[in-house]
Nucleic acid binder design. Structure first.
Lengths: 198, 198, 198, 198
DNA sequence: CATGAATGAGCCTTCATTCAT
DNA sequence: AATGAATGAAGGCTCATTCAT
């Protein structure tokens, strides 16, 4: 279906060049159609990229939610670690998506901003809820020190953001190593360690 | 001096709109000159933004180095915390610089990329060295657990990156709170805590 | 067809004003379209004028070759004279082409130079061959004095160049007269004149 | 004297790039001054190039007149040949002047055209007169066949134009050879050859 | 004399978009 | 559904020129 091919290319070029340099004509050329044909499927450049953005966000969201749910029968530590792992895996396995995602975050054309931000907020909230649930459980079960759940969540999300950013600077191996360390330190900071952290 | 005014405006618009949308004509208009006048001072759009970028990087670098040096007589914990504080202060006190800085990181026009990356690497290396020094000292003095210094440094930088990214999403108050938490957890993960973390 | 109309106008303006002053916008205006429309047909200003040049050279070449071939059943003197006549006729009947042709020779934008020169060389070579053939025949038949064919050809081409240049300076009548004289002198210099030149 | 240096550079660049591409700023750069400084010496770009053109024409004219006069005690053949030689020498020894001269002929900015043409005509007339004188003498002395002096002059000038144009296409050696041949043929066409041409 | 600063005019080019086919 | 043709708007840039210093 041409419509999807257009979206896919738009999305690839968004990652590569950003919104402004991802020209409708360059997209058309890569798809193998003429520029005006795009208008048969999308009202606008804005419209096209709105579709791309929505896909992008939803894709990430669905992936994370699903990944987290699959760990529901594991312990708190495993679950949290799994989330970090999943985050890494998601971005590492499709770096283009990640780049798009970043450009999306920092470089939205003003018009798109509001609508995208809304979707973004909704998603974040949902993800937050899941994570909060895990922390609640951890505290209830005595695996985590008693702490404000909101604080823990915020802290965890911050860690994920850090990792997310670093992914850009470092190469695969270096990156993996760093994730490991940050995780250890994080976990040791929040877990209920009897005499010693493990 | 017009030359500096141009650079300042370019820099403000870079933060606001990014490289592509920071038009020479829009810059000229804000400065209060006509577009071709820019060429009396800068060879190019690229040239102008190269100047902006160099300033940006150098400014940040000098600030951090100086800030760190001013803590040289304090203890390890204080020094590390101070660095985090300084990072925050730097970006919070001049959010435009930060935004520029981010756009710079993710959205360089291809030509500028190499030269900027080089400057960037040099700076990062210098910063790294300072931080490594602090960790060495901490371990020697028995304030930190014995750990690979490289690992500690990497971990600390990752934390700073996370904070850096978060600065964008959250508002002042929320942000400050999060920094606090991340810091606590980080410190507790690395310090030589006798019986209890403080 | 707009594409051809653009080329025709470009060609007229090239003759009138030369490459630099033949602005895309002035061409567009004369054609009755807006400047960017030109880009629907030609990639570039360079591209457009490349097309003009190629046409120009080919047109001249085809005309001369055809004209020469039509004299193949005549004597050497008649054939050579006919070539001179054809050259004059070609340029006199469409002076714009000639002017373009000259500007082309002396004032090519550097980029076009190489490609055009190549075409030009090919053409010249082909024309040379035909003329050499005529001289060979003339000598074999004893109508011309024995002389190096290469020299004769060179000499004849020089004569044509002279005429070509003069066409620019003088008005029709004067010019025609001069051609006559140069031809007489040339022919008398090369023909096998018994006692007297005729 | 800066004024003359400017003219010299203007003249060199005219030869190299033609009027339009010989920018005031590129001239200034080569001279080693700033663009507006040119206006201290010349009212205009047009004014500057008018000066260049006048020099060019006068230089050529003076050279030819002087060269011809120096042969006044020689025979007709020698004198005519010497003129051809001088023409060649003039252009070959300073090819830049020649190129300027040609661009001047074919590519004058419309404004300059009239004034330059006038100077040009005056010069040509003066040169014509000298040549006519030589031919008159040749006929009177019985060295040349009786022919209209105007025709002979026209014919000779045409020969010079041809040579002038060819100078552009061919390299030194080839060119010299051609000149020789054309000259022979020309002379044989006009001289009073008893039984045989020499 | 020389120049730094500034500018109006204009050039080539690209882009998103429209519309008839 | 697709495209050829066309365009308004705008962008980066160069040029000749002016003017105050």
């Amino acid at each position: 279906m041409t419509k999807n091919k257009i979206k896919a290319v738009a999305y690839r070029q968004l990652a590569e060049k950003g919104y402004d340099r991802a020209t409708l004509s360059s997209i058309a050329k890569e798809v193998g159609i003429k520029t005006p044909s795009i208008y048969a499927f999308y009202k606008n450049k804005e419209d096209l990229f709105m579709a791309v953005y929505k896909d992008l966000l939803q894709d990430y969201y669905l992936y994370m939610i699903k990944a987290i749910e699959q760990t529901s029968n594991k312990g708190v530590k495993e679950r949290l670690y799994q989330i970090v792992e999943d985050l890494c895996h998601y971005h590492l396995s499709q770096p283009e998506k990640t780049t798009s995602y970043m450009k999306l975050s920092f470089f939205l054309p003003p018009t798109l901003n509001d609508e995208v931000k809304e979707i973004f907020s909704e998603m974040e909230e949902a993800l937050c809820d899941v994570i909060k649930g895990i922390f609640s459980e951890g505290i209830e079960k005595g695996q985590l020190k008693k702490q404000s759940i909101d604080d823990l969540t915020a802290s965890f999300l911050c860690l994920m953001d850090g990792i997310f950013l670093e992914m850009h600077y470092y190469q695969y191996h270096t990156f993996k190593q760093r994730v490991q360390q940050v995780w250890n330190i994080f976990w040791n900071g929040i877990c209920m360690n009897m005499h010693q952290r493990d």
